[in-house]
Amino acid sequence: MNAIEIKNINKSFGDTQAVSDINFSVKKGELFGLIGPDGAGKSTLFKILTTLLIPDEGNATVSGFDTVKDYKRIRKIIGYMPGKFSLYQDLSVQENLNFFATIFGTTIEKNYHLIKDIYVQLEPFKNRRAGKLSGGMKQKLALCCALIHEPEVLFLDEPTTGVDAVSRAEFWEMLKRLKAHGITILVSTPYMDEASLCERIALIQEGKILQIDTPQNITNSYSKPLFEIKSHDFYQLLKDLREEPFTERVEPFGEYLHLTTNSDISSNSISEILEKKGHTQIEINQAIASIEDVFLDLM
């Protein structure tokens, strides 16, 4: 049995189709990423799966339970960390944790093994009010509260948005350890560079799934010739390449431009053309597609 099964899910708010015809499943024990920008429909899908919204069409199950009919069963066996910080700001770290343990009919002691690695970092602040914690600490506390009843499936909606690179890296390390406990994790993020940390991902944009596969297969699926290029005048280079007939698309990609060509033109030929246009210090290499390249191509 799959941990999550989603079939033909549609949901609109007024005229806005938030998610349309979503189909995918998440295997038991899998770390699955839902990757897409703000407004793509990630949070709507999370709310449907966590029984907080009823879909207009289609159905979904979590651990075999239907999200509409069996919502009470689902709520007992999932952990949910919403995108917006939703703990009690006026309660201390320890009080929040106690509260969530109690409403799920358990105790901190009983499931301490699950949160131990995370909680040790919070322990020095255990009497501090949740509202007074830093972004990274809030995120850790929210994760502890979502875990304290030993859920079968964990839903993390943009857990790393707004936290710094160190906290983000630590957070992903924690997710890997939780996976080792057999917990299924569905995590969403707008940051494409986090995709490679998941076992499988779904790329989502404007309510539709663009592709579902392992991050490796998704980047390998980019079959067009791709180059990274720079020259002494980055902005002029962008404008010049856009004029060329061999250019399918060209966009800034950090230090380089990424150029996708529509023919088998060699990097030497491109370089010569650019030299004729007055570019110097030209650097051109064949590039390996990233998740962002694929996303741009599928959009």
Partner: peptide
């Protein structure tokens, strides 16, 4: 550019 899609960001 936090949170925008890759095309918008570019």
């Amino acid at each position: 550019t936090g949170g925008v899609d890759p095309a918008t960001r570019r």
